[in-house]
Simulated scan of single mutants.
Amino acid sequence: MPRVSEAHLAARRQQILDAAARCFVRNGFHQTSMQDVIKEADLSVGAFYRYFKSKNELITAIAGEKISQATGLLDQLLALDPMPPIPEILKRLLELVDAAAEHDGTVRIAVQVWGEAVHDPEVGALVAEIYGRVRERAVLIAERARAAGQLPPDADVTGAGAAFFGLVQGYILQKVLLGGTDRRTYVSGVRTLLS
């Protein structure tokens, strides 16, 4: 029997993640069964379970994929010298959020994951680890901003990083729960608060 290539395995895994994301966006995390995802992915049960054993694994993989995009962007911005101003960094992150909202609606999954993390210790630990990566970078942004004079010399960079991260989560919540949240208006409001 010929070996399956790494590219084939990666493509099949992505096929499953895309199917799961569509199901979670359409029906919610709790209303989606593993059977729903298997059917959406158009796979056999055996083929599916080769990649994922539970909904928690699926949700963790989807969240990890989206967070990797955010951390990748933050790493690029942190590598710039000079680093862009904080509102510009926020604007770039929110562009990523808006692209996900418009492309496949996966931003809605984030809110579901946050809710699940409150009740499921396994999901809670995974969410803390995944989102902790973003908050670490937000603290680095605050450190660089303080060094560049964008923040006062005595600024609490840990607190500023946590607040910056909260601004992104707040945007996502408003976008999902209230709708009609405009990125330009939101970033303008942040600029006003920082001035």
Rank of each mutant, 00 (worst) to 15 (best):
G46R: 01
V139Y: 00
V113F: 00
P84T: 06
F164P: 08
R108I: 00
E129L: 04
K55W: 10
A19P: 13
F165E: 03
R12L: 00
G124L: 04
E40D: 05
M1L: 14
G179Q: 12
L74W: 02
T185M: 05
L93R: 10
L78P: 15
A162H: 03
L17R: 06
R3G: 10
R184C: 12
A7K: 03
G189K: 06
E129W: 07
I141L: 09
Y186V: 14
R133I: 01
R135S: 07
Y186K: 07
K91M: 09
V118P: 14
S33G: 15
E65W: 03
F52C: 03
E136S: 13
E88K: 01
A128T: 09
A148Y: 08
Y49I: 05
I89S: 03
K91T: 07
A79S: 13
V37R: 07
S68K: 05
L58I: 03
L17V: 06
L80S: 09
T185D: 15
K39N: 12
R184L: 10
T185W: 10
V123A: 08
V127G: 13
G159P: 07
L80D: 08
V134K: 07
L93F: 12
Q69G: 15
S195R: 02
V123E: 10
L94M: 11
K53G: 11
R137K: 00
A160S: 13
A63M: 09
P82L: 01
K55F: 10
S5E: 10
A70H: 15
I86N: 06
V107P: 00
D81P: 11
V45S: 13
Q14S: 11
L74R: 01
S44Q: 06
L74H: 01
V45E: 10
Y186I: 09
Q169A: 14
